[in-house]
């Protein structure tokens, strides 16, 4: 079976800076893949390129084994891909339900719907179901998101993403600013998302977290993928070695495509 999403030889330059240099990436359905690398290694650029936020100079992207050209975030959404950005992109003055359906409000039936009225009951029920499914810690669906803790907000952003993404969710540093308990909740959430059959791309600087939830770790350095390692049996030292270039995994990398 071909990978769910695969990027081959993506390149993108900003002036003289090669943000992506013949970089590849792949993820299978229902798999958690970590994307790691030092600052400026090209992780965010890769995610942007895969989700229609950034055109690439060369290279190809395959979705379900078929070549695709994703030019807008909207198109990525329609294909079942969502991104949870590091800043979460939530509206702090709106409540979790309103945030979850922002830009995708359910219309009332008939004339009222045409006039722009929204079906608040349906949205609330669906949001409740979404939060219950993830066993979240979000207790209030009517309070403003801005009044909630970082962990709760992270959860809202993730629930929003997986409500709309049925294939792949990209998480950009979901645990960067969280405490111990909140981090554990987010990692548990990632596992539950994976169990639903949705692939998760996890961008993180935290090696222990990466090794805890990911099946495979793809390491980027200087705009290209330098290693793909199974999480099992890999140590934090090996990951850091690959990130910094101290260890060379280039031979291992060439064989992993079929795995």
């Amino acid at each position: 079976m071909p990978p769910l999403l695969e990027a081959r030889g993506l390149s993108r330059s900003f002036g003289h800076v090669r943000a992506l240099d013949n970089a590849s990436f792949d993820i299978n359905a229902g798999e958690v893949v970590a994307l790691i690398g030092d600052n400026g290694a090209g992780k965010s650029t890769m995610v942007k390129a895969l989700t229609g936020n950034l055109p690439v100079d060369s290279g190809e992207v395959l979705f379900d084994g078929e070549q695709v050209t994703i030019t807008t975030p909207h198109q990525a959404s329609e294909m079942g891909m969502e991104v949870v950005y590091q800043d979460l992109a939530l509206a702090p003055h709106l409540n979790p339900v309103q945030n979850m359906f922002l830009g995708r409000e359910v219309s009332r039936k008939g004339l009222l719907g045409v006039l722009g009225f929204m079906d608040e009951k349906t949205m609330r029920a669906r949001a409740e179901a979404g939060f219950r499914e993830l066993g979240g810690t979000v207790r209030s669906l009517t309070a403003q998101v801005g009044a909630m803790s970082g962990g709760q907000r992270q959860q809202i952003a993730i629930v929003r993403a997986i409500t709309w993404a049925n294939r792949i969710v990209f998480l950009d540093e979901p645990t960067a600013a969280l405490g111990v308990v909140q981090t554990k909740n987010v990692l548990d959430t990632i596992k539950r998302v994976r169990d639903k059959g949705i692939a998760v791309v996890l961008i993180s600087h935290s090696m222990p977290h990466v090794l805890e939830v990911a099946e495979r770790v793809q390491v980027m350095r200087l705009g290209t993928r330098v290693a793909t390692l199974p999480a099992k049996g890999t140590t934090v030292e090996q990951l850091v070695g690959a990130m910094t270039g101290a260890l060379d995994f280039s031979n291992a990398d060439s064989k992993e495509g079929a795995a």
Partner: peptide
Amino acid sequence: KTRFGRYTYAIGSNELGARRVG
């Protein structure tokens, strides 16, 4: 009560976020 109003709040609350959700 309408989507137009909801977007008005969303833009004032987090303009970039509003752009990101389309």
